[in-house]
Every structure is written in structure tokens, then in C-alpha cells.
Write a protein that binds this DNA or RNA. Structure first.
Lengths: 215, 215
DNA sequence: GTCTATAAGTAGATAGAC
DNA sequence: GTCTATCTACTTATAGAC
């Protein structure tokens, strides 16, 4: 902690790498400390030395990896909120793309960390509050404000909340359930499919929102 | 098995009840056999006596509870597929309602068993194949055929698959993430909210599908 | 069918040598 | 900072008395 000793830093990082990967694959309970240190190639006691406990290591994965790496995504939303852009199709496509691509051209961190979110939603621990307060709720609020600006007609607040949740539900499904998606679509979850998906999702969202009064 | 001894039947059922509840709350790994038998008010060894193993008890929850209780829901889809009804708004509303209400007026089994699906999706075991083959895939195929009949214009098969997944993603979100939903909407997940939700979801689906060619 | 007792394994965590 | 060795607790599962 006090020194930037490259060796001990690397040991700590190796544990964090393995923990991130294994917790994402199996969730907290199904992974043992022995499994983590085994894959990291370090000694069993390294977890307690560097992180005090398995539980704290788990939380550190969220604090040191998940939240920092969601910054590009959050920055995209923040920027979109401040820009003068108010064209709904552009706004929606940019947000959908930010979710599935993480705001950049490379593989989305949201997709990489999807399984971690998923386990935490299914089995909430202290990390749930962290995710909710630092990621989900701020993102939800921003998306809601962005949609509000892009929608021309008057919309009730609860209706707007529903549109926001619809967007999150749709992208979340593709982020969290890639196995089911691959099976049903009979396609690999590759870059071409991601492009196609962004098209489908953007169009669907746009038309779902742009409704006239009920027939 | 061979006798309908009421005492032993009730012991078996009490274990199954507690297992269903606890596995739904915490998932397989986080629940111990002691916890199950403790809450059921029966002896520890009852699990191995009646179900051979913890793993098999878990599977039995799906075989004896989840799948049978999904019958009303599946029956609704089957009936909808065979009826001459081809009005898209009615078709969509009936399906959305079947998900969230399980096809009847009382609390949906889909909602009751939501956490079990959720844990299994996050942490797939043998029960995943069971759910996929006996519930998700058949439901998906039926919904897709029902939508195909209700949509007037020509639609590509993959586009149709996407619409089907959109419906499942939207309802799944409300079935699986009730905690998040309550927090964001600041409303209880009661009957009134369920009615409102069915309105929102049906409208959103309907307009999301009924798009003209892209502007 | 239900109990006691216990086996056999694994979990997270720690004291102390190096 | 990393290792060995071990502690304590808890897990599923089973053999055998009642």
C-alpha cells in the first residue's frame, strides 16, 4: 500500500484479475478462495493478506474494476445530456450503442461485466447498493432526462420512467442473457450481430415511444 | 411413493415448500440442507431420504413445482395460437397479461418463480436445460407464431425473432427485478401497478412492432 | 419413517516460520 | 511479502438404532 513495489502490486492485481473472472462466471458463493488463488498462481493466504477477506475481495472487484471501467459509458450519457442534440433517433441510438459498446469501438465493459451485475441482481449483497447508487440510478436519471428532451409531445413522468426502464430492460437482456440469445437467434454474438442488434433496438425503442394516442 | 401415507407425503411436501422458497431467495449454493429442513420443521436426513441429494431436491423443485405451475400460462399461449383471433393489440395484451398474471386473476406463478428462473439463468445447472426445453423455447416459438399471424405486413424471420425477444425481455425485467422496479418507480408492486404495467407494456410492444419503413 | 451419531470433505481464516 | 501448517466451522451424506 505504502510502496509501489511492482512485485506485490502484481500479486494483488493477479488476484483481482482471477476474482473478477471467476465471480463473473459463477457468482460469489460458488467460487472458493482456493480456486481464485490457484488460477492467479499465488498463494492461498494472499487473499487475506491483501484484501482481509473473501467478501472484501468481492467488493473490491466492484470498487476497483466495475465502477471505474463504467466511466466511459457514464461520460457518454453525461455528454449527451449537455449537448444541444435533441434528435430522438440519434439520442436513442447513441444510448443503445453506449450500453452495448461501452461508448467506444472496442468490446463493451458493460458486456464484460454483465455477469457480475447479473449475479448481484439475483443475489444482492452490499455490492448491490454500490451498483445501484453509483451506476444504475445515475444512468437511469440521465437517460430519463435525455429522453424527455428528445420527445416533442407532453409525457407524464411515470410514462417517461417506463420508457427509460424499457430501454434498460432491452439492453440488459442482451447484456445478461447472451447464452439464451445465441440459442434463439442461432447466431454468434459477434460484431456484425451487435451492429444488427443496435439497429433493431434503436428502431424498436423509437417507435415504442413515438406513439399517438391509443387507437 | 407406493403408499399415499398422509404423514410422509406431508413431510416430503414440507421439504419441497421450504426448498422452493429458500432456493428462490438465495440460489442453490447459498442454501444449506440444514436451513431447508430447519424451516420445514423436519429432520436433516429427510432430504436424503426423500430426494437422495440436495442437487436432486433442487431439480425436483423445477420438475414438481415450476413446470407444472407454468401450465396455465402455456395453455393460454396454446389457446391463443389456435383461436381465430388475429387482432394484434388483443394478442399482445393477452400475452403480456399471461406472463404477469399467469393466465388467471390471481398472483402469477411466473412472478412467484421469477427468482428461481433468475438464479438459474445467472448460474446455469441441469435445471437450465429443463427450463429452456420445456418452458422458454416452446413459449418463444408460440409467441413468435402468434405475432407473425397478427402482423399484417411482410416481416423477415430474424426481425420476428427480435420482436419476440423484446416481449420476453420486457416482461422478464418486471418479473425478475421487482426490487429495482419498486425503487425506480417509487410504487408498490401491487395489483394496481400490475394493471398499469400491462397497459404500458402492451402499448409499447404494439407501437414498437407497428413501424413503417425507417424514416 | 425418523432419529442419533458420525463420516469425509471443504470452506474461510490465521499464527508463525522464513 | 510469501510460505507451511493448522484451526475452527460448516457442508453433504450415510450407517444403523429405534
Amino acid at each position: 500500500m505504502e510502496q509501489s513495489s511492482s512485485h506485490s502490486d502484481r500479486t494483488r492485481e493477479k488476484v483481482l484479475d482471477a476474482a473478477e473472472r471467476l465471480f463473473a462466471q459463477k457468482g460469489f458463493d460458488a467460487v472458493s478462495v482456493r480456486e481464485i488463488t490457484g488460477q492467479a498462481g499465488v498463494h492461498l493466504s494472499a487473499v487475506n493478506y491483501y484484501f482481509e477477506s473473501k467478501k472484501n475481495l468481492y467488493l473490491e472487484v466492484f470498487r476497483a474494476r466495475v465502477l471505474p471501467q463504467s466511466q466511459p459509458f457514464q461520460a457518454t450519457l453525461k455528454q449527451l445530456e449537455q449537448e444541444e442534440e435533441i434528435d430522438l433517433p440519434v439520442l436513442i441510438r447513441t444510448m443503445v450503442s453506449a450500453f452495448l459498446r461501452g461508448g467506444t469501438g472496442r468490446r463493451s465493459n458493460m458486456v464484460r461485466h454483465g455477469p457480475l451485475f447479473f449475479h448481484e441482481l439475483a443475489n444482492p449483497s452490499e455490492a448491490f447498493d454500490l451498483l445501484m447508487d453509483e451506476l444504475f440510478q445515475p444512468a437511469h436519471d440521465r437517460i430519463k432526462r435525455i429522453l424527455a428532451r428528445g420527445i416533442k409531445r407532453e409525457v407524464e413522468d411515470e410514462q417517461l420512467t417506463f420508457y427509460t426502464m424499457a430501454l434498460m430492460a432491452l439492453v440488459r437482456h442482451y447484456i445478461h442473457s447472451q447464452a439464451v440469445v445465441q440459442k434463439v437467434f442461432e447466431r454468434d454474438f459477434d460484431e456484425r450481430f451487435l451492429d444488427q442488434l443496435i439497429d433493431y433496438l434503436s428502431d424498436f425503442m423509437l417507435h415504442g415511444i413515438n406513439l399517438e394516442e391509443k387507437a
